[in-house]
Computed example of a mutant assay.
Amino acid sequence: MKDRKPLQKKIVNALLGSLILLGACQSQPDSIKPVRQSITESVYASGVIVSENQYEVFATVSGIVDEVFADEGAAVDIGSPLLSIANDAQQLMADNAELSAVFNALSLNRGKLDEAKSLADLMKSQLENDSSLLERQKRLWAQNIGSKVELEQRALAFERSKNNYASAQEQRKELERQLSYLSRQARNNLLISNKNTGDYLVKSKIKGRVYQMNLTEGEMVTPQIPLGIIGDDEKYLLEMQIDEYDIVAIQLGMPVLVVLNSYRDSVFDAVVSKINPIMNIQSKTFTVEAEFVRPPSVLYPNISFEANVVISTKKDALLVPRNYVLNDSIVVNEAGERLIVKTGLKDYKMVEIRSGIDANEALILPGQ
């Protein structure tokens, strides 16, 4: 029998060699090379559709809903009544204010002013007469005619008439001021009463559509309870939330790519139209509005959407996967050397390399 030990030794050596070769191949890290293609940097956002000028309707008084004039879906104009609140007591107060305004109207109290003027005119005539008699008595006294007592009596009569005339003038002026005051006060009270009465009739502030009406007849109304929602029925806005880390990159006029949950298979173009300059403390986000370039044919408030605000786009850029770049500034080549690069645009997968390497540089993942 032949000795099998040399053959077994050869087989073992061959297997060991294969394992070493396989291990050597597996120890070589995967490498990639940069590619040239377009890249778009964008900021993710989510939000809801709102009607332009959309607002919640509130009453300024409390009471019971008397009648609802507009249901959901109703078209309204500026000043269109939405609902009325029972106001019997307020209506009585308004009637009293109107009666007071009529009673104190200056035109209806002209007779009192005329009477006061007549009295002042009478006092003026009396003053002129007493003045004439006093001057006559003085001339007689200068001619030693009459007595000093008669002169003093004429002087006293003149002073009395002068005081009476001054008093009559003052009374006339005071009566005129008082009547004017009462008239204006009554008119203002009537305006206030009418304003308060008008508060019991809730009206639309815009031309649009009633999207929601929360109360029905007989329910209680307070200024804290929203009565409904009204907005424009022709123009809609995209109201989205942007994270505080991304808000500094957002500018007016930037394009927005929108996917509505009601139109999952379509992408709509929009443009940033407004940036609210205060952050929501709870969510750490800013509210940004955008307008459709060409809106869908059918829209409703509160439809949710996802969007990407396009920050910048570049064609034929030199790109590598983002996980191949360490700290946005370092890549590692096949030889394990760390190379400093300058990065540019980024999306969620790729990053632009502006300088530091070219398209022929083979790279490995940092840490391999």
Rank of each mutant, 00 (worst) to 15 (best):
Q26V: 12
G356F: 07
R177E: 12
A166C: 03
L191N: 03
N188E: 14
K5V: 11
Q153H: 09
N302W: 05
S51I: 09
Q90S: 10
L238V: 05
N189K: 09
V351I: 15
M93Y: 11
V57N: 02
K207Y: 04
A70I: 11
V35D: 12
S283Y: 04
V65T: 08
L83N: 05
S262L: 01
L319E: 12
L257A: 05
L83Q: 04
K346E: 01
V271T: 15
L21P: 06
R160F: 10
P277K: 14
K342F: 03
K284C: 03
Q224I: 06
S131H: 11
A97Y: 03
L7A: 12
E72I: 13
E67H: 10
S42F: 00
S355P: 01
V332M: 13
D233F: 00
N188C: 12
P226C: 07
E98G: 14
S118V: 15
E152K: 13
N13M: 11
D130W: 13
R264H: 03
Y165I: 05
V76C: 01
R177F: 10
G344P: 06
I250R: 02
V258D: 03
L156F: 08
E174R: 12
D233V: 02
I145F: 07
R160H: 08
I145H: 06
L319V: 13
V68F: 04
L106R: 10
L106G: 05
K314T: 11
A359K: 15
S100C: 05
G63S: 05
L99H: 12
V248W: 02
D114Y: 00
Q91G: 00
L134N: 08
N164D: 14
M240A: 00
K342C: 07
I229Y: 06
